[in-house]
């Protein structure tokens, strides 16, 4: 009898020790990023946020300005593409009550959520090549001469890759939101004689907290992504300001910078990688807290 008790206490102690062991790295990551990041940023807060990275070998600190701006641009465009598609298709799946298309979307999106993101980047890159090839074939057929070149590395391809990453997160959250609408609310809305589009708008405002938290999750997800940008946005250490060039040239992101600078041999680049990691973590923390608050209020 006592042996059983001893075993129970031993195993429980073991569980506690292993759990604490697992949490040490997590805490260590948070603290390291905060400590190193803050120390770098404190040296020149505005410079870090707005300056361009220093050229290799130089002693100055510089900044990650183009990468902060790049992340901002990429996420804005990706959200513009991804959010409407996700929410509208979720509405169709739930409110349209289709027998095939809805459930099929539901299933495929849940599979899509786990696609390796590097494969998505690779596919977008490959798609650009295939489209270019197709256009040039047409050009040849019609005897127009010349060669059309589509730039592979630019904000648009990057944003498309990110939008593909984002869609399943926003979609699943929205779908769950609409599915959880109580029956009497839905009946009330439809009994007012609304068209389905109007009814969907009314119901959307009813589940706006679910939609918002879905958007938060989606945005923080693509903010964290690196792999799908490797072959699409590519990264760029300089500001591109002139109008059409912005959309035709490679563009940076904070994650791409951390990846490149972290692996570089230059100390000031590595410092800036920690700074970028800290800024990224702070933004994600804010998004996390907001989405928690939304869920909590619901």
């Amino acid at each position: 009898m006592d042996l059983r008790r001893l075993k129970s206490d031993l195993m429980i102690t073991g569980i506690i020790i292993i759990s604490l062991l697992g949490m040490i790295p997590l805490i260590h990551i948070f603290l390291t990023v905060a400590w190193r990041g803050i120390n770098v940023i404190a040296r020149d807060p505005l410079g870090v946020l707005f300056k361009e990275p220093p050229i290799p070998g130089s002693e100055e600190l510089g900044g990650i300005g183009p990468h902060v701006l790049g992340s901002l641009i990429l996420i804005s465009i990706a959200s513009l593409i991804g959010i409407p598609i996700s929410i509208l298709s979720a509405i169709y799946t739930v409110e349209g009550m289709s027998k095939r298309l809805g459930p099929l979307t539901s299933l495929l999106v849940r599979i899509m959520i786990e696609f390796p993101t590097i494969v998505i980047g690779l596919s977008v890159y490959g798609a650009v090549l295939l489209i270019e090839e197709f256009i040039n074939d047409l050009v040849k057929i019609f005897g127009l001469g010349g060669h059309i070149y589509i730039p592979r590395f630019n904000p648009i391809t990057g944003a498309i890759a990110l939008a593909i990453v984002m869609i399943p997160y926003v979609y699943t959250q929205s779908e769950d939101g609409f599915k959880n609408i109580p029956h009497h609310i839905r009946e009330a809305v439809y009994s007012l004689g609304f068209s389905r589009i109007r009814a969907s708008i009314v119901l959307s405002s009813y589940v706006k907290s679910a939609l918002l938290s879905g958007i938060m999750i989606g945005v923080s997800k693509i903010l964290s992504e690196t792999a799908p940008l490797l072959f699409t946005a590519f990264g760029n250490d300089h500001y591109v300001t002139r109008f059409p060039d912005v959309f035709l040239n490679p563009i940076g992101s904070m994650t791409l910078w951390i990846y490149k600078a972290g692996l570089s041999p230059y100390d000031n680049w590595i410092d800036l990688a920690w700074a970028a990691a800290f800024i990224l973590l702070m933004i994600i923390l804010v998004l996390f807290v907001i989405s928690r608050y939304i869920i909590y209020k619901r």
Partner: peptide, 28 residues
């Protein structure tokens, strides 16, 4: 049939995306 059915274009687009990802990998 009301305009609501236009929403389904989004579902179809998602499916096309998944198909294109696979298609590009295979073709390439």
């Amino acid at each position: 049939k009301d305009l609501f059915y236009l929403f389904s274009l989004n579902n179809i687009l998602i499916m096309i995306l998944i198909f294109v990802i696979l298609f590009v990998l295979i073709i390439s």
